[in-house]
């Protein structure tokens, strides 16, 4: 948001100027309800997750059913175990690549469609928005099932249509035999499901851009691309940073799409951290291992996002 060059119309610079008010007790009153909710539902479970990660993983569920019982404390041994396993690092690497690809595609398509929404006639906007909403409203479990049909090797529409193209032989092609192709299909499901949120929020953001700023740019003879780069994008940046942050978090922990696409039996090549944590920790009732992996997931995310967190502070300070 600090990118307010002198070329920008005065309204925009003026808006960005000035510093935050000191409000005495007001800000504290305002955040109290949010703090209560956080304390209520986050602090205790988070503490419990950390405690679980410091206790021994026993093969029995006995401790779980007797309120923790006599499970010995093992310090950081669970973490050492996790970090010294090769699988963990393979999974982490796969997760990072998957996240990067998914976030990039989500952002590109989300911005493009947001801008498109702003360009078209009302009727076209209504149609596109309705489709976006429907996409958004379909539960991930169901959308994954639909994509599994579309990409089915024998009955899938995708193979059927591709096979019709001259020189392409896709009949019977199994998209899930090779995890790279399978994860590409899953990427499609994830990005498809994430586009509506970005497109709709960013379009909402675009509508907040003062019209006179855009008019002025147009009078100055700025082309569509220049207007986008120098006015729309800087204006959307705070929103983009937040949506990117959240997309990173979601795609890093993606679960439903992979889990249901592989019908609850994800092969080793499909294991990302969210899946790994679930199958190692939750579905096998090994909650200590699961808690350890969950803590590691949060730490890895924080590392990935250090840059973004700093960016967020900058935005906060600038305003």
């Amino acid at each position: 948001m600090t990118a307010t060059g002198s070329s920008l119309p005065p309204t925009l610079t003026r808006r960005r100027g000035g510093s935050l008010r000191r409000g005495g007790n007001v800000p504290y009153l305002l955040i109290t309800p949010a703090l209560i909710v956080l304390a209520l539902v986050v602090v205790w479970p988070l503490v419990k997750v950390i405690l679980l990660s410091l206790q021994e993983q026993q093969s029995s569920k006995r401790a779980l059913f007797s309120n923790g019982g006599t499970t010995p404390w093992v310090g950081l041994r669970n973490f050492v175990d996790a970090l010294t396993s090769r699988t963990f690092w393979t999974v982490l690497e796969r997760t990072l690549i998957f996240t990067a690809v998914n976030v990039a595609l989500t952002l590109v398509f989300g911005i493009a469609i947001a801008v498109l929404l702003n360009r078209v006639s009302k009727w076209a906007r209504v149609i596109l928005t309705a489709v976006l909403l429907f996409v958004w409203a379909v539960p991930a479990t169901v959308s994954t099932q639909i994509y599994a049909w579309l990409f089915n090797n024998q009955f899938g529409v995708v193979n059927y249509v591709l096979d019709k193209l001259p020189g392409v032989h896709m009949q019977g092609h199994d998209w899930f035999a090779d995890p790279t192709q399978g994860l590409a299909v899953i990427t499609l499901v994830v990005v498809w499901g994430a586009i509506p949120l970005l497109a709709i929020s960013l379009h909402a953001g675009i509508t907040q851009i003062p019209q006179d700023v855009l008019e002025a740019a147009r009078c100055d003879g700025a082309g569509a691309w220049a207007t986008f780069r120098h006015i729309v994008l800087p204006f959307l940046r705070p929103l983009l940073v937040i949506l990117t942050t959240l997309s990173v978090i979601w795609d890093f922990g993606v679960f439903h799409q992979i889990w249901f696409m592989r019908n609850g039996h994800p092969e080793p090549g499909y294991q990302t951290l969210g899946i790994f944590m679930y199958s190692q920790g939750v579905s096998s009732s090994r909650y200590n291992t699961g808690a350890t992996l969950a803590v590691l997931m949060i730490l890895a995310l924080l590392l990935v996002m250090v840059v973004y967190v700093r960016q967020l502070f900058k935005i906060g300070d600038a305003e």
Binding site: S59, S60, H265, P266, E267, P268, S284, S285
Partner: peptide
């Protein structure tokens, strides 16, 4: 044995079979 459930949740047999079938 109590640990059998983890063989199922770990997909040990499914993964083995898929690599044989493919």
């Amino acid at each position: 044995t109590p640990n059998w459930a983890n063989v199922e949740s770990g997909n040990v047999l499914q993964n083995m079979l898929e690599s044989i079938a493919t």
